[in-house]
Design a protein around this nucleic acid. Sequence first.
DNA 1: GCTATATTCAACCCATAGGTTGAATATATG
DNA 2: CATATATTCAACCTATGGGTTGAATATAGC
Lengths: 109, 109
Amino acid sequence: MTTPVLDLAFAALSDPTRREIVQRLAKGAARVTDLAQPFDMSFNAVSKHVMVLERAGLVRRTRAGREHHIALDPKPIRRIAGWASRYERFWSDRLDKLEAFLKANRKRD
Amino acid sequence: MTTPVLDLAFAALSDPTRREIVQRLAKGAARVTDLAQPFDMSFNAVSKHVMVLERAGLVRRTRAGREHHIALDPKPIRRIAGWASRYERFWSDRLDKLEAFLKANRKRD
DNA sequence: GCTATATTCAACCCATAGGTTGAATATATG
DNA sequence: CATATATTCAACCTATGGGTTGAATATAGC
């Protein structure tokens, strides 16, 4: 049951810098330079972060001359949302149990 | 904008073994021994995985004698679902654009 | 053609992650 | 009490992550 998509997506998003980059990209595509600008770290570090996001499929790159256009690909995030949604049932179950418990207590009042 | 909750949750869930453990725990609490049983790795390795999940808040531990009862705490998963849901708008935006594009083409037919 | 810009590649550093094995600790059980 | 069971702690190993700096590569602009 190897699901490298989730492995890579979760790992990529565990870094706050990369989550900020994703958030930034949700507002539109950008060059690597643009993405690096807000951060207090080397351009190369950000370039590496972008590569990690790309390898995880969270981002797509199109080359336009010397500039690389980085765009968000939300599919892996969707996968994560799907994975997480499995547990909504679990949440409801717990709520149901709590509700049942409160109901039972109310009867005794 | 430090959100260690998401950092830890995403990191914890990036490991397939830990995701399997979470999935298992969705069916009910279990001892560490029970959790380790299906895996082809040392008990200690699984124990460590459980500790990682605990540190990330994905799991709660209650001691009953020598046995530790491990139960799923779905709150961090909820946080992740919330984070991912921010991008639903982005997905819809892209779908809207696609729809608009198709509509425009239909007009030309 | 020369220089500036955008980007990756490569080597390195240090910390952490995931795994192992071997104690240590605490609680059950005969 | 002695032994078996459930679990963590500790030390170790190797691989990977996130950061740095210093090239190398490719394209743009004068």
